[in-house]
């Protein structure tokens, strides 16, 4: 655990309002996830979900680089990517409640939230399953010559999937405009990376495909941003894919059923000390961009936004079983 607890001093080439926006996006993810957990405990969300708490800097730092018409693919732990890509929180909440007006008309739930029109090609219930999809989307972007790029998120567990190897090699061969973002949250469910991977060095893997690979502090939103910026620029220039590793940590269990038997409270606490939101907030205070009062106010605004989304979802209709088969075929 060599990560710093502060944001490294660096030249910040983003205007203050962008930085504040990024901070707000991280807060929105954090509060959304906390409320999802509470709603589940209260029996108002069922099924399963995978909380992104602790990893917010990864999604926000990377997606902030994208243009609105660029694409992402996400994972089973996908709420953060959706929010960072600009998803409507009320529609996400409606989907988690299984409502007809949710993103997937209640057919998908947490693991399948998508908004193709807005460039979110979907969360995914299969570890590594989105990597070939992202690669194909990048192939389409290249063929269409539309200048767009695809950002493909997956976890450290997906590095052990065959789909990762096949798709990354494929993208390398055709120099596709895709950025692979491996969010290393240290565990593939209960398997620590050091036990589940022959090599934990992402740059070694990238080199094997002839690609640049970079590993960054995934709890430092600006470090993620900088790495993603370089990778996205490279992709847009037609120079092909990059693999980025964001080193981060999930605070909560893998899913709702996780009793955390495979790690210690001390380890979790140590990572909480490097909370990506607190670090970025302190950094912005240090620059004089935010005051403690601003931060409190933003927290309350975001809390209210999430509560409004919960109320919206409450008011929405369930899908009609008579329309069960809608959407199987076009």
């Amino acid at each position: 655990m060599a990560e710093s607890t502060i944001i490294a001093a660096r030249r910040v080439d983003l205007p203050p309002e962008r930085l504040v926006h990024m901070y707000r996006q991280m807060l929105r993810i954090r509060h959304f996830e906390e409320q999802v957990d509470l709603l589940f405990q209260a029996g108002r969300i069922w099924g399963t979900f995978h909380l992104y708490i602790g990893q917010e800097a990864s999604a926000v730092g990377a997606i902030e680089v994208l243009e609105p018409d660029d694409y992402i693919t996400s994972t089973h732990r996908g709420h953060g990517h959706s929010i960072a890509k600009g998803a409507s929180i009320p529609l996400m909440m409606a989907e988690l409640r299984g409502k007809e007006t949710g993103y997937c008309r209640g057919r998908g739930g947490s693991m399948h939230i998508a908004d193709v029109e807005a460039g979110n090609l979907g969360a995914n219930g299969i570890v590594g399953g989105g990597i070939p999809i992202a690669t194909g989307a990048a192939l389409a972007c290249k063929k269409l010559g539309n200048g767009r790029v695809v950002m493909c998120f997956f976890g450290d567990g997906a590095l052990a999937q065959g789909a990762f190897h096949e798709a990354v090699n494929f993208a390398a061969v055709f120099k596709l405009p895709v950025v692979y973002v491996c969010e290393n949250n240290q565990y593939a469910m209960s398997m620590p990376v050091a036990r589940g991977l022959g090599s934990t060095d992402i740059t070694v893997r990238a080199a094997a495909y002839g690609l640049p690979g970079v590993s960054v502090d995934g709890n430092d939103v600006l470090a993620v941003y900088e790495a993603a910026k370089e990778a996205v620029n490279r992709a847009r220039r037609g120079e092909g894919p990059t693999i980025i590793e964001t080193r981060t940590y999930r605070w909560r269990g893998h899913s709702k059923s996780d009793a955390n038997r495979y790690r210690t409270k001390e380890e979790i606490e140590a990572w909480k000390q490097r909370c990506p939101i607190r670090r970025f907030g302190s950094f912005l205070e240090g620059l004089g961009i935010l005051t403690p009062v601003d931060r409190d106010r933003m927290e309350r605004e975001v809390e209210a936004e999430i509560q409004d989304a919960i109320a919206f979802a409450d008011s929405q209709p369930d899908p009609d079983p008579a329309q069960l088969a809608d959407g199987v075929y076009a």
Partner: peptide, 26 residues
């Protein structure tokens, strides 16, 4: 070769890339 693409020996990548490209309108 752009429209008759020889791919690596990667069935998951071939089928998945087809799906990803199809979703974008190809």
């Amino acid at each position: 070769p752009e429209r008759v693409m020889d791919t690596p020996l990667s069935e998951a990548a071939i089928i998945g890339a087809a799906a990803g490209a199809a979703v974008l309108g190809m």
